[in-house]
Design a protein around this nucleic acid. Sequence first.
DNA 1: CATTTATTGAAGTACGCACCTCAGAAATGT
DNA 2: ACATTTCTGAGGTGCGTACTTCAATAAATG
Lengths: 340, 340
Amino acid sequence: MRPTTKDLAKAAGVSLATVDRVLNDRTGVKKRTVDKVNEAIEKMGFVRNLSAANLARRKNYRFLFLLPRTGDQFLDELIARVDEAKSAFAADMVTAEVSQIDDNHPHRIAKILSGLDPEDVNGVAIMAPESPQVRDAMLRLAERGIHAVPFISGQPGTAGEDFVGIDNHAAGATAGRLMGRFAGANGGKILAIAETMQSRGSLERRLGFDEVMTADFPPLQVLPSLETYGDPKRTERIVSNSFANHPDIVGVYVLSSEARGPLEAVAGAGGNADTIVIAHERTPFTECALLSGQIDAVIAQNPGHLVRSAIRILRAWSDQREPLASQERIRIEILLKENL
Amino acid sequence: MRPTTKDLAKAAGVSLATVDRVLNDRTGVKKRTVDKVNEAIEKMGFVRNLSAANLARRKNYRFLFLLPRTGDQFLDELIARVDEAKSAFAADMVTAEVSQIDDNHPHRIAKILSGLDPEDVNGVAIMAPESPQVRDAMLRLAERGIHAVPFISGQPGTAGEDFVGIDNHAAGATAGRLMGRFAGANGGKILAIAETMQSRGSLERRLGFDEVMTADFPPLQVLPSLETYGDPKRTERIVSNSFANHPDIVGVYVLSSEARGPLEAVAGAGGNADTIVIAHERTPFTECALLSGQIDAVIAQNPGHLVRSAIRILRAWSDQREPLASQERIRIEILLKENL
DNA sequence: CATTTATTGAAGTACGCACCTCAGAAATGT
DNA sequence: ACATTTCTGAGGTGCGTACTTCAATAAATG
């Protein structure tokens, strides 16, 4: 049978009250007594029964996912996963809500963050472009006892090591390796398309992509990134321009999670079945396109993992525990039609 | 605030005792009353506080991982992950032990299973070759209230849908696709090496591999599988024979999780840096080999996920819950040196 | 040594639920 | 109408921990 606090008290030769004081970092215990208790904990391998503790504390975990509001399928998927996690974690006293921000200007987000009440929320996962204001707001949140973790889009340097998402540089490099191998050594040009290159994520992906391409596949030349700004007309125009100017395009790399627009433009502009296409994120569209052969490979991060990882990290924070690092590293998945 | 059993009782117009009878499937409640309570549960969205319930029940989860005893690095990794999971789940009253079986004959395993005491163990994850005896033993375990889940090596048809591991056919197909694309369209022969082709896993992988190769890469010819039987001398002999007989080998596919032996033999037998090598499972060796370029891609299943998934599934069984299917599907990972 | 101050212990309540007992109430059969 | 049988409610105890109160003791101070 597992030792309880009572056993601990007996073993350490102190009372339950003292054990409690030590376990919960309360004041008014001599250092020597603290040590005595800790030794006993060590010796008998005492592990606090979190369920009982949380029960007694009447604790419940209320987490918030702050997401942007785009029509992106990847985002839909994320929201669906939060919903799923909500019921999966319900028995563990975890509740999670999604709040979508119409306008993702840094000061708007910062304002929302500063308006959060520790009574309502004890953890936030934030998907927002990097910015000093948001970073600041997150630090101030932490001071008020609300833990925040950057989600997918990073606020590097905030909240220590915690970050839920992939290493975009490595993701780009992975895409580069696949592109290089798939597109062959015969040479040709590669088109890179992003919604915007303002975002840190896209920049890093491009960087990683280029590194591999120049180092290992010099015959392939990557063209300057096209930016669609989410505008279908513009997308069509710039893509067909590119194909007109570069008849030797052999591959297309879509950096952003919204791949449908760019790929429709590519199809209309002269991309054919031989054009190697690599995109990001698993969505209904990329799944279909993989199966049909329109896309050759997808670099993805698992939305379910992302959401659950965020929840586990926030819960660990909330319990003053360390999250299990090896579980929380989000993998860069490579999807082919065979391993969907 | 979340509704408690007390709230439920009030809402349903019955007493706490009756709510308890319904919640725990006890006898002696009229059907109409049961319905009344269930309606109330539905209406107020009552969710049992599992922590409190388990506390009251003095419940703890004791799980066992039955693994073979080979020197395999993949297995070492698995064991390390069980150990890790042990401490990670300790606060949730989960304990997990590993038991390695020297002799993995079906009847030996069946015997071990039948000797398990429901008092000591309430769930088992079993990694063992498919066999009717083991399957039977698992069914009989279930009757005694010990839930068993096939782990990595499958006992298809046992324990319903539960299976912790990847679809080996798809894994082989994935390997095939990569081999086809990496090895190029110039043609050549592909060497397939397995420890043994007796195992269902290897067979399925080979099948999936062949399907893709014949369908999409006809210029590449896959040679009959070599079986090493884990014997270094034999491995060296048959591999160098193959290279001697087929000077046009352009790729090697190692089907089993132990890749070191086969690859050393390949290196000694004439494989060069251009030979495309695809192997299974992430181990210290395959990691190194990926980074050095000796291996071009690894098809893997995440050991940490495997272990935790098994634990979650066993726990769900134990709580009479359904596991969250989407979380428990083990992904077929593709590892390149960029996304390690 | 007296007094203050810092530690410690004893004893209790509560958390949400499981499980037990026993006494009534309600439904059923005769 | 009566005896059964089947349901139901009231009330209690305990799970392992948190947190509180108050008294008792030990240690530090002057």
